[in-house]
Design a protein around this nucleic acid. Sequence first.
DNA 1: CACCTGGTGC
Length: 608
Amino acid sequence: MEKLGLGFDLILNNNLIDMYAKCGNVKLACSVFDKMPQRNVVSWTALMCGYLQNGDANASLVLFSKVGTSNVKPNEFTLSTALKASTVLGVLQNGMQIHGVCTKSNFDSAPVVGNSIIDMYFKCGRVGEAARMFDTMPVRNLVSWNAMIAGYAHERNGEEALNLFREMQEKGEVPDEYTYSSALKACSCIGVVSEGSQIHAALIRQGSSYLAQSTVAGALVDFYVKCRRIAEARRVFDRIEHKNVVSWSTLILGYAQEDNLPESMNLFHQLRESRHKVDGFVLSSLIGVFADFALVLQGKQMHAFATKVPYGLEASVANSVLDMYMKCGLTDEADALFREMPERNVVSWTVMITGYGKHGIGYKAVKLFDEMQVHGIEPDSVTYLAVLSACSHAGLIKEGQQYFSSFCSNPHSKPKVEHYACMVDLLGRSGRLKEANELIEKMPFKPNTGHWNESEKIREKVKRKGLKKEAGRSWVEINKEIHIFYNGDSTHPLIEKIHQALREMEKRMNEEIGYVHNVNFALHDVEEESKVESLRYHSEKLAIGLVLVSGGVKGERMVRIFKNLRVCGDCHTFIKGLSKVLKIVFVVRDANRFHRFENGLCSCGDYW
DNA sequence: CACCTGGTGC
């Protein structure tokens, strides 16, 4: 009787740990665990899972290390959980060590363990190791296939992901919602509209209930958004019976991507009024929209909102706020937030370095780069790109060269084409053409012709698949409203007045400071006269023209213009002249950096 | 007691 009672207690308490953990109360789960007179492997594993589910991967691994000193032997679930915890932490060495334990105990042949190992290697960037695990698994299940397809899709190797998606079905495996989600993600990263549409069509044919659920249908919305088929995305979204925050935010971002900011904001307000809770994921991506469009007011409101919700302190949310301030040109606000953030990861530091780099404040970028390492945060390849670019923009040649060589000599990192391009830029800017050439020759990639082929291939693909490439556009905020202009845009109701204002400014600048058009920046295959005309149609000039005609400069000392591509040379000269003649500061954010035009000069030093 | 789907920096 007594024995039976004890056994019941054990099962009951294990269930209690699981239940409390799943309800988000790890403390209670922990106290049950502590008070148990007797524990088995399930007790340990349940609490490890509890920590993990509640975001404390570290505590999960600490507990795992204590299993060894207890009288309990870990089983396949314990090991799988430990692997997942080290995956979340992103420490490869940790995961490899546990992989070793699995191999020694023969638990690596259990699918649940093998699947976790595959996932761990993919998330740590070891694709080869992941594939080897999959190839040598004695028993595979649906999750094994899912882990592989998800892994390749995450790696942006859509072809391999889709190969496996086909192969598993040939072998008789029936895809589930995870499989479809990853397969659709693979389709969007290849940018092949037809492949994803086929999956969509198959789901319709099967009368699949997945189309009414937010997971698969949400992935389908994302797919159409990425393929720039916003109308189709909307159709799929509208038919989801149980929408969740992810499907909402996907569509919101989709409309923003199409420059349909009114619809994007409209959906956001609908989302806020709905019963769905906005979470950290949604918040950070929406703040990303405000950053892209430099919507300072909305961005600040969202920051204020973030400080009032528990998930607002998550690094991902705080990082997006940092980035928003930087992209809006508010470096002081970004700095203040950065200093008070409780948790700063590699992205936080990279955002700051990128931001200062784009503002041409190289010394601050360099200082942060050194400081982050003192704090024990290792820069990754994006951080290096940020600091190299900052050095280039600020003319810090020596520093840039030092960082580049330390990056090259690090056995854990491999410079990519972008890093070389940045260095060539840095050397070229200081007139060290010989060194720039030497660097190009030393590159482990094929220079020029190789890139040309690659970009030709992409352009060909874009044409074939009917994808749209990003059109040049600029925008300006006047009276809290965003006005977007495309190159050659003539749709604005005030377009006549805008052109008239621009012509008047040209004339005045010509008389006062000798401004002339630089037609080298115009299209090559048009007559001289229309070249001048075509320059006047550049989106950044149109945006400035609107500021002029709407009286936006009256009483304003600063005008902010934003462009998705790089500012053109003639426009650059034009705005320099305007800043002198009108005695106004123009701040232009282009794809590459910030330009601050004041009294006829630009902060970029005419090099960008 | 478990593995696989959605978010932040180039």
